[in-house]
Design a protein around this nucleic acid. Structure first.
Lengths: 215, 215
DNA sequence: GGTCACCGATCGGAACTCGATCATCGCTCA
DNA sequence: TGAGCGATGATCGAGTTCCGATCGGTGACC
């Protein structure tokens, strides 16, 4: 509801997609291609992903891949970006569902969303390990975590009544931290090491707590 | 001195280098090649690095590159590994020079070493952004931060008299965190955002402090 | 003289292009 | 209103280019 307005357009695929899709089936195609890419990454890793593999798995031709993505890297970048979008949406859903009263609960919503993503999207951990590959040419090179920090900060302030003083900055740091630690959790154990995940949650909450709790 | 014994052989280039160099000039060659690779990465990014670029910049031929490295990825992996070696050595040097009495001072030694590396080795930030690319085939996929955590833990315990209980694990987490946050600092500002660096230092010290200080 | 280091033409395969073909949509006019 | 028809979008895949990797030959070191 209100949350969704805040995040619409927060993340764009500008520069990633070659031709904006006009017909409906195109959007599906893109989704299918990204799903295929995700599966391929999970299977052979980022470096060994070839555009031919993506095309074949998606049931498309190579030409179709290049219709939507300028090059191989753009496919990976788009995949990464879609992951962040999903994280944002899932976070918002969790926040709406639980309506947290403490910052700690709010953090849990975000961590859960991220963990869920690592679990369900097979190639996501891999791509987080080596994200940013493409960013030098996508834009200034802003880390992906920073992209979600701003919209989330808005939500925290406007909807949860958290003190906004420097929150965006702190959230950015917190997300960078959480990102790295969660990746670590999923490197330790493909299903996500429970201790490492809990440690992450505690650490992030501990970091954000002192300044922010004003629910 | 004693420190150096602890870290010798902690990091090896096993599997990275094709033929162990016999003649002296070979070691220089490898260093030159890695320097070239570092510069290329800083310029065009990891994905766009080609073996030809590395060869040309190093004043060598393509064949020479492949004499020392089995493939393109191995060049990047070796570069990453050399960075971690340098970090370890620089950390040890800093520790020896300052002989810290508090954990906080010790952390500062490490952070300084890492910051220095980001500053002097142009491609290091990039490769930290997307490290691990090669690790799936190098070994079990252990995150690089974990590799330095163990030897550093030994030093902390044996030389600084810090409580060793679960220290390796905590150091691992701390380094993962520091790594990500420092990369962030250098993405924000190529020279390394001072605030972000200080925040990193504070965060890591804060995380390690409660359990460890027993100097 | 034998090994080590180096070179760069060459090969194979993957990234990417391009013109032809098929699908869809909006418009027109009976 | 809906059948026909162009225009534009979407798809394809053989062809081209470029890059990773090899290999046999030449020079440097001991």
């Amino acid at each position: 509801m209100a949350f969704n307005d805040l995040i619409s357009g927060a993340l764009t695929t500008s520069g990633q997609v070659r031709n904006e899709p006009v017909q409906a089936r195109s959007s599906e195609r893109i989704a299918t291609l990204l799903d295929a890419a995700s599966a391929v990454v999970a299977e052979v890793g980022i470096e060994r992903l070839t555009t031919a593999m993506v095309a074949e798995r998606a049931g498309a031709s190579i030409g179709t891949v290049y219709r939507y993505f300028p090059d191989r890297i753009a496919v990976l970048a788009a995949m990464s970006l879609r992951g962040f979008e999903r994280f944002l949406r899932a976070s918002v859903e969790n926040l709406e569902a639980t309506r947290p009263t403490t910052l700690d609960e709010a953090i849990t919503c975000l961590i859960d969303a991220a963990v869920e993503l690592h679990r369900t999207e097979p190639g996501f951990t891999s791509i987080r390990l080596s994200d940013q590959i493409a960013l030098p040419e996508v834009d200034g090179g802003t880390a992906s975590a920073s992209r979600v920090a701003a919209p989330l900060a808005t939500i925290f302030v406007e909807e949860l009544g958290v003190d906004g003083e420097g929150l965006a900055e702190r959230l950015d740091i917190a997300l960078t931290m959480a990102d790295a630690l969660l990746v670590r959790a999923f490197v330790i154990d493909p299903k996500g090491d429970a201790d490492a995940i809990e440690a992450t949650r505690a650490l992030v909450a501990g970091y954000l707590a002192p300044a922010a709790s004003r629910t």
